[in-house]
Deep mutational scan, measured.
Amino acid sequence: KLETFPLDVLVNTAAEDLPRGVDPSRKENHLSDEDFKAVFGMTRSAFANLPLWKQQNLKKEKGLF
């Protein structure tokens, strides 16, 4: 399991300012399950079932792209 970080560490943070080991294209993977659901309004599995373009739009909207 990946290390999780608080939302404010990941949202609207440039790649070079992210904690070590965080993939800038997969910031959402480093949210706790609770934060993930609070941000996206759905579970990880529901998010994973969305088309890629919709996932990317949601990530942009939430500052996690």
Rank of each mutant, 00 (worst) to 15 (best):
L2S: 11
V11N: 05
E16C: 14
P24K: 07
K62N: 11
L2R: 12
T43Y: 03
K60T: 08
Q56F: 10
P6R: 01
V9A: 09
L18I: 06
F40N: 00
N12L: 08
R44T: 02
E16N: 11
G21F: 09
H30C: 06
K27R: 15
Q55P: 00
L58V: 05
P19G: 04
N49C: 15
P51T: 05
N49V: 11
V22A: 04
N57Q: 15
Q56K: 10
S32P: 01
L64N: 03
G41K: 08
N29L: 15
A14R: 13
S25Y: 11
E3C: 13
L7T: 05
L64Q: 02
K59A: 05
P51H: 02
T4C: 10
E34K: 10
Q55T: 01
P6Y: 02
N49E: 14
L10E: 03
V39A: 08
Q55N: 00
K60R: 13
G21T: 09
P19Q: 04
K27H: 04
P19H: 04
G21I: 08
N12V: 07
G41A: 08
T43V: 08
Q55S: 01
A46E: 15
V11I: 14
D33C: 06
T43W: 02
S45L: 12
P6H: 03
L10A: 02
N29I: 10
V9K: 09
E16H: 12
V39P: 00
M42D: 00
K62M: 08
F5Q: 03
D8H: 14
V22Y: 04
L7G: 03
V9S: 08
A38R: 11
L52I: 13
P6K: 02
K60N: 07
K54G: 06
E28P: 03
A15Y: 11
E61G: 06
N12A: 09
A15N: 15
V22E: 02
F65V: 13
L58K: 04
T43Q: 06
F47G: 00
K59G: 01
K37S: 13
K62I: 07
P19M: 04
P19K: 02
E16G: 12
D8K: 09
S25W: 11
D35C: 07
F65Q: 13
F5G: 02
L31N: 00
V22C: 05
P19S: 04
T4A: 08
F47Y: 06
A14F: 08
G21Q: 08
K60C: 14
V11Y: 06
L58G: 00
E28A: 02
D33L: 05
N49K: 13
D8N: 12
P6I: 02
L64S: 02
P24V: 08
L64V: 03
L2I: 14
L10G: 04
V9M: 15
N49A: 13
Q55I: 02
E28M: 04
A38C: 11
P19I: 03
N29K: 11
L2N: 10
A46N: 09
F65W: 14
G21V: 07
A38P: 00
W53K: 07
D23Y: 04
N49F: 10
V11R: 12
L2Y: 15
K60L: 11
L7P: 06
A14T: 12
P6T: 07
A15Q: 10
Q56C: 14
T4L: 12
T4F: 15
N12S: 09
Q56W: 09
A48C: 12
K27F: 05
N12G: 10
F40S: 00
R26C: 14
L52H: 10
